[in-house]
Amino acid sequence: MITLVLGGDVNIQGRATPATAFERLNPLLQGADLRFVNLEGAVDAPVAEALTAAAIDVVSCANDLSSVASLPVLDRAGIAHCGAGATPDAAHAPAVLDRSGETVAFLAYTALRSRGQSALPDFPGVAQAFATTAYQPDPRVAEIPGRPPLVRTAPVPEHLDRLVSDVRQAKASNDHVVVSMHWGLPGPELTEYQVTYGRAAIDAGADLVVGHGPHTIQAVEVHRGRPILYSLGNLVFDWPAMRGRHVDGLLAGCMFGAEPRLELIPVRRNADNECEPLAGEDASKVLRYFADVSALRSTKVSVHEGIASVSGLGVGA
């Protein structure tokens, strides 16, 4: 049995004491075998200090604010990373961690991109999971002119094929596979490509898909007995443009084993931009929203005393 704690988007900058960035979350981070977050932005020594102080074991670097130049800083700090590298093969290589004789492989991809960031032969960058966008006329546009078109998205075929191949290879060599996806749009609505990528990763053997990128909380879907967390929202996030915006997020606690479990605790950045766990009615309100949007994905989420529990894990896996 292995336990993981997973958080969403993390951006650390401008702190007088970086080592305290996760201080109010430490009670939730302690005790897990592995701790994972998506790391947005360049990594310098203070950022590495914040991550090591919180005992973060592994980070995704596959996102639209990633800097491959930061990878040596993570290496020196002993923090595993995935989703970026000096070549495509390096960007697609899993970060593998061993706990109690079991291995967990972490793979990471981004659908959100900045120009020149994708890993190309002899050029560093991030692992791609891009999508195409098309606009379909509303079926009633002839009778009601001006109705907005339907937005249709789909994975880039070669990117989907590579992701599926990566997951299968990782699963063949390891006990568990976690796939990190940086994707989506703010708000509760999922894009079609998110669902396609997420389910394909599970079908290929992933035990868990963890999403981030929209900076807002999105649904969890249980597919073939394994969870797709479409977005955990923000965690510790110091990017000035995000001050006072998208302040809610989730920490996910996942247990791999004969009886898998997934529980989520809401967190919020306060007026001082410090991330802390929620309690009472504030926690219940966030989790009821999470349960409602997850119900739209045919997934039952139970809320009790500030913790959300996901049903249906292991069934049909």
Rank of each mutant, 00 (worst) to 15 (best):
residue 3 T to Q: 13
residue 6 L to S: 08
residue 8 G to C: 04
residue 8 G to V: 05
residue 16 A to T: 13
residue 16 A to C: 05
residue 21 A to R: 02
residue 29 L to M: 10
residue 29 L to G: 03
residue 31 G to E: 11
residue 36 F to N: 09
residue 36 F to I: 02
residue 37 V to S: 04
residue 38 N to S: 13
residue 39 L to D: 04
residue 40 E to W: 04
residue 43 V to H: 04
residue 49 E to K: 06
residue 52 T to K: 14
residue 52 T to I: 10
residue 53 A to Q: 11
residue 54 A to E: 01
residue 54 A to K: 00
residue 58 V to G: 00
residue 63 N to L: 01
residue 70 S to C: 03
residue 71 L to A: 03
residue 72 P to M: 07
residue 76 R to G: 11
residue 80 A to F: 09
residue 81 H to Q: 04
residue 86 A to Q: 15
residue 89 D to G: 11
residue 96 V to F: 03
residue 98 D to W: 10
residue 105 A to S: 00
residue 109 Y to H: 01
residue 115 R to L: 12
residue 118 S to Y: 09
residue 123 F to L: 12
residue 128 Q to R: 13
residue 132 T to Q: 08
residue 137 P to W: 07
residue 137 P to K: 01
residue 138 D to A: 06
residue 146 G to N: 03
residue 149 P to F: 08
residue 152 R to V: 13
residue 161 D to M: 08
residue 163 L to H: 04
residue 163 L to D: 02
residue 172 A to V: 13
residue 173 S to D: 13
residue 176 H to K: 12
residue 180 S to R: 08
residue 182 H to R: 00
residue 188 P to C: 01
residue 196 T to C: 03
residue 200 A to M: 04
residue 201 A to E: 07
residue 204 A to L: 06
residue 206 A to Q: 06
residue 216 T to N: 08
residue 221 E to K: 02
residue 221 E to P: 05
residue 221 E to T: 08
residue 228 I to Q: 00
residue 234 N to E: 04
residue 235 L to C: 12
residue 244 G to A: 11
residue 246 H to Y: 14
residue 248 D to K: 04
residue 255 M to W: 12
residue 256 F to R: 00
residue 261 R to F: 02
residue 266 P to E: 01
residue 270 N to F: 02
residue 271 A to Q: 12
residue 275 C to T: 15
residue 275 C to P: 06
residue 276 E to I: 02
residue 277 P to D: 09
residue 283 A to F: 02
residue 291 A to S: 14
residue 291 A to Q: 11
residue 293 V to E: 00
residue 293 V to D: 01
residue 294 S to E: 11
residue 295 A to F: 10
residue 299 T to P: 07
residue 299 T to E: 08
residue 302 S to M: 10
residue 302 S to K: 14
residue 302 S to C: 10
residue 303 V to L: 07
residue 304 H to V: 08
residue 306 G to V: 03
residue 307 I to G: 02
residue 309 S to H: 12
